[in-house]
């Protein structure tokens, strides 16, 4: 019985996320708030989310609370700042005549559990200074680093993964 209740909770959560995202994308694509557009978009988004919500049920999507929304906004800000730093860094390395790189492949460890959180962490690492994710298995990430700062697992984890896990943990915790 509790299993069934749990599954239906998951279904409702996946339905809510899917409906919200498809509806917002529709509104941005038509870029108007006229009633016919909004109503037809509502109907189409309802149909899509009823048909596809079971695909999103097992992913462990969290319920959206105020605290999580605040952490999400802070996370997006941090991500943008890191992306800009990453670009200036790579631009410097590309434009330098001797290409000052010291590349290598290191392993880091993460403490995140859910699959979506690991996906977001891997994509964020790909977008930030000098690092990009090659492979993910269980709690370990294989990372190519353009200017290696630490070769052991703990040091690399502290340098690469910590600044995002700080924000991702309250969101998906």
């Amino acid at each position: 019985m509790s299993q069934g209740v749990d599954r239906s909770h998951e279904w409702v959560r996946g339905f809510a996320w899917l409906f919200g995202i498809t509806f917002v994308v529709w509104l941005a694509l038509v870029s108007s708030l006229a009633p016919p557009e909004v109503i037809s978009g509502c109907i189409v988004a309802l149909a899509i989310s009823i048909l596809g919500a079971h695909l999103y049920a097992g992913l462990g999507l969290p319920a959206l609370t105020l605290k999580r929304a605040a952490f999400l906004l802070a996370y997006i800000g941090v991500l943008f700042w890191e992306i800009i730093k990453a670009n200036l860094d790579v631009a410097y390395r590309v434009l330098h005549p001797r290409i000052p790189i010291r590349p290598g492949i290191v392993v880091i460890r993460t403490s995140l559990k859910s699959n979506v959180a690991k996906l977001i962490l891997a994509n964020s690492i790909t977008l930030t200074p000098g690092t990009f994710t090659l492979d993910v298995v269980d709690d370990q990430l294989l990372i190519h680093w353009i200017y290696v700062g630490a070769t052991d697992v703990e040091g690399a984890t502290r340098l690469i993964g910590k600044r995002f896990e700080k924000y991702l943990k309250p969101i998906f915790g």
Binding site: I83, I84, A86, N87, V90, A91, R93, V94, L95, I99, I101, P103, I105, T126, L127, G130, F132, H144, I146
Partner: peptide
Amino acid sequence: LGVFRMPDVYNRLQAGTKCTTLG
């Protein structure tokens, strides 16, 4: 330019991901 100049596949991916995404 980074895709053209860098010495191996992984470094090319570094330049090709970050700079073109933000660009």
